[in-house]
Design a binder for these strands. Structure first.
Length: 183
DNA sequence: ACGATGATGAAC
DNA sequence: TTCATCATCGTA
């Protein structure tokens, strides 16, 4: 399988563009000499300071400062007292934006196993605050690769973001992207 | 439908 | 220093 690593150039674009483009790409996690690959099938864009659903809406704080930094770094935060969320920072430095990785599939023994939910994904890949602010390169043990595998008939759908009802009109924007088997 | 569970940001 | 809230999940 032919693969190339995704670099800063890929992430240094609008969050909505990166979100759409990152579907079908592969998250690779290297841990204790083992490598696990997960294909991304659901993401959400959080775009700019006026996005009421985004952590960046309140301005720069200790927690969200990574979102204001350079593209291609991990933004990992803790919610609901028990869950870690994995995001990749997008857009140019100074403009707060990120893509939340919500679901993927891992192939084992030829079978596709879904990992539906952002907290399940981080639990599966053993991701926590250690990754916050680190670049998505192989050296850090968590990076992204292109996928040249022939993708059977998949289609992409957009919808409302999940769990952001507090965000008023911004909650209704179609910033959630999914890749589903069309069949 | 709801509780678990603790960091975060804003109010006091 | 207190308080409400939270980019969720498993159990019911």
């Amino acid at each position: 399988m032919q693969r190339r690593k995704l670099t800063k150039k890929f992430f240094n674009r609008r969050a909505l563009v990166v979100a759409r483009d990152i579907l079908g790409k592969i998250i690779v996690r290297r841990l204790n000499g083992k490598t696990v690959s997960v294909m991304i099938i659901e993401v959400e864009a959080y775009d700019g300071p006026s996005d009421r659903a985004s952590h960046a809406h309140v301005g720069k704080t200790k927690r969200n400062e990574i979102m204001f930094g350079e593209a291609g770094r991990w933004y990992v935060y803790f919610v609901y007292g028990m869950h870690w969320m994995l995001n990749i920072v997008t857009s140019k430095k100074g403009y707060p934006a990120a893509v939340l990785i919500r679901a993927g599939v891992v192939t084992r023994h030829g079978k596709e196993i879904p990992i539906n939910g952002p907290a399940k994904l981080t639990k599966f890949l053993k991701i926590d605050k250690k990754f916050n602010g680190l670049p998505a390169i192989s050296k850090t043990g968590l990076w992204l690769e292109d996928s040249k595998s022939l993708m059977p008939s998949y289609r992409i759908t957009r919808g409302k973001r999940i769990g952001v009802e507090y965000a008023g009109a911004w909650a209704k924007k179609p910033y959630n992207f999914r890749m589903t088997k069309s069949e």
